[in-house]
């Protein structure tokens, strides 16, 4: 019981990070029908941008951890958004209207480019940040084992919840969100109503990257290190989460992310930690075979 509750907390924390990344996959897929395989690396770049700003804020400007983290969040979102905007502009937009595989291949190229670029610029070693929010809030004790929730886990869950709330508001209630949903359904009609479809797609990439940047900041805060290759595994897991939730569905991406996080931590606790990635990726295969539209996905309806 005590192990289960502890793993539940750990799983939800990890799942929050996956969920934030998964939204980027699912939004881009929804609007242009393409899987942005570079998104995991955009998350990693977000982590590095956060690392750099965090160092500047604390080591040079001598800010306390909490205000530094707030500023890093905002700056990380802005700069990672700019990165993804540029990626879309140079690597995907020129390929719009070409065959379906072209942007996919371009995305894989972008993914390799980003991770290698960061490797060359930042070096191949793990980059640490000083530990922060190290206190643990004890919840209850059973059989001599104290179940606790770390302050940083609380920070992650709160930041994720706030980001998702803002994001949900933007998609549901603002003109930008309405334009995104309109473009998702019928781009030609949207442009005939005066919506600049290219700009809307660009902003979708920026929004996805901003959430990936939040995930990146949470990641370095949680693990304390970031490495140029850290985009790949969380990226693919977030993609699994998006598929599990039903790609194209925003609540699906969040629920899928939480589920993947839980499956991974539960597997590590009760079976073998070495096989935790196998467990997570098996979900991808199982979902695609038995539930191709995911938990919340709409079945593909042929347009007439």
């Amino acid at each position: 019981m005590e192990v289960f509750v502890q793993q539940l907390i750990n799983g939800l924390t990890l799942g929050s990070i996956y969920g934030l990344i998964a939204i980027g996959y699912t939004m881009v897929f929804g609007i242009i029908g393409m899987v942005n395989f570079a998104h995991g690396d955009v998350f990693m770049v977000g982590g590095f941008i956060a690392l750099l700003f965090f160092m500047v804020m604390t080591a040079w400007l001598g800010l306390a951890v909490l205000p530094a983290l707030m500023i890093v969040l905002v700056l990380g979102m802005v700069f990672t958004g700019l990165w993804n905007w540029a990626i879309e502009r140079v690597a995907y937009r020129p390929l719009r209207g070409s065959f379906r595989l072209a942007p996919l291949i371009s995305a894989i190229g972008m993914s390799i480019l980003l991770s290698n670029l960061v490797q060359v610029l930042q070096g191949p070693r793990n980059k640490p940040v000083p530990p922060m929010f190290t206190q643990v809030l004890p919840l209850f004790e059973q059989n001599g084992y104290t179940v606790g929730i770390g302050y940083k886990q609380i920070v992650i869950m709160v930041v994720t919840a706030v980001s998702l709330a803002i994001f949900w508001y933007v998609v549901q209630k603002t003109p930008l969100g309405r334009a995104q949903r309109a473009c998702e359904q019928d781009q030609k009609m949207a442009s005939l109503l005066g919506i600049n479809v290219d700009a809307t797609i660009s902003l979708t990439f920026v929004m996805g990257a901003a959430l990936a940047a939040v995930a990146g900041v949470m990641y370095i805060m949680y693990y304390g290190v970031v490495n140029f290759s850290d985009g790949f595994i969380p990226g693919v897991k977030a993609f699994t989460a998006a598929v599990l939730g039903g790609i194209g569905s925003l609540p699906g991406a969040v629920i899928g992310g939480l589920l993947i996080g839980l499956i991974e931590t539960m597997w590590s606790a009760y079976f073998s930690i070495d096989y935790k990635d196998v467990a997570a990726f098996s979900i991808l295969a199982i979902t695609l075979v038995f539930l191709p539209t995911g938990l919340f996905g709409r079945p593909e309806v042929e347009k007439v």
Partner: peptide, 19 residues
């Protein structure tokens, strides 16, 4: 409302002010 996108988008300060 989608059809009134452009004036609304400008009024919402490209979403930032709207949020």
């Amino acid at each position: 409302l989608v059809a009134q996108h452009n004036p609304l988008m400008a009024a919402s300060g490209w979403t930032v002010l709207g949020v």
